Amino acid sequence: MGFLSRLFGGKKETSTEEIQIVSRKPVGKFRVEKTFKILGKETLIGKVENGIIYPGYKLRGKEVAVIYKIEKERKTVDFAIDGDTVALILEGDLKAKPGEVLEIYQS
């Protein structure tokens, strides 16, 4: 769809691209304690059970989502390690529930 069509009300493009996991072995696990929707993004609060988490990694439960940002004590951090309690802001809708353990995969 061209620029002018989008500008003047043509059909909106929708992304039907699914998130896929390429790596076969998970690099860690994350236990969900709470879930929120903040500004349309699913946010999970929980504890890193094992491994290391970076933004851009993928979480897998019933669905798959990409980690957009990691926050610890209300500050953005570059990564999270074993034992850290953090908030993960996601791209995509994982539909996780408290108590669920999610697998973490590299991008």
Rank of each mutant, 00 (worst) to 15 (best):
I52P: 01
S15I: 14
T14F: 14
G28H: 05
F36C: 02
V48A: 01
F36I: 00
R74Y: 12
V27M: 06
Y57T: 00
V66T: 14
V64I: 15
E13N: 03
E49K: 04
V27S: 12
N50E: 15
V22P: 00
Y68M: 09
Q20S: 13
E17Q: 15
N50K: 11
R31V: 03
E17W: 02
K72R: 15
L44D: 09
T43R: 01
T76D: 12
D82Y: 13
R60S: 12
V32S: 00
G56D: 05
T43D: 00
I67G: 08
G56R: 10
V48P: 02
T35P: 05
K75Q: 14
K29L: 11
G83T: 13
G28D: 03
K75R: 15
V22G: 00
A65L: 04
V22Q: 05
K58V: 05
K58W: 02
Y68G: 05
L39H: 03
K25E: 13
K47G: 02
S23R: 12
E63I: 00
K12F: 06
L44C: 06
E33V: 06
I52C: 12
L39M: 11
K11L: 07
T43W: 01
K11D: 10
I38H: 01
I52F: 08
K37S: 12
I81H: 15
E71G: 06
K58F: 03
K34S: 07
E73R: 13
A65I: 04
E63Q: 06
K37W: 03
G56I: 06
V64M: 03
P55S: 07
D78S: 15
K75D: 09
R74C: 03
P55K: 09
K37F: 11
K75I: 04
P55N: 09
K69N: 13
R31P: 00
Y68P: 00
I19W: 01
V64S: 08
I67H: 08
I53E: 07
K62E: 08
R74E: 12
G46W: 02
K34D: 09
Y57P: 01
P26F: 06
K25L: 10
I52L: 13
A65Q: 05
K72G: 08
K75T: 09
E49Q: 08
K69A: 14
T35S: 14
E63V: 00
E13I: 03
I45R: 07
G61N: 01
Q20I: 11
K12T: 15
K72F: 03
E71A: 10
Y68A: 14
K25C: 02
Y68T: 09
P26M: 08
K41P: 00
A80M: 10
T16M: 07
V66P: 00
I70W: 05
R74G: 03
L44R: 12
K72Y: 11
K12R: 15
V64L: 07
D78Q: 13
E73S: 15
I53F: 04
K41N: 12
Y57F: 15
V64R: 09
E18Y: 09
E33N: 10
K12S: 15
G83M: 12
G28R: 06
K34H: 07
K25G: 01
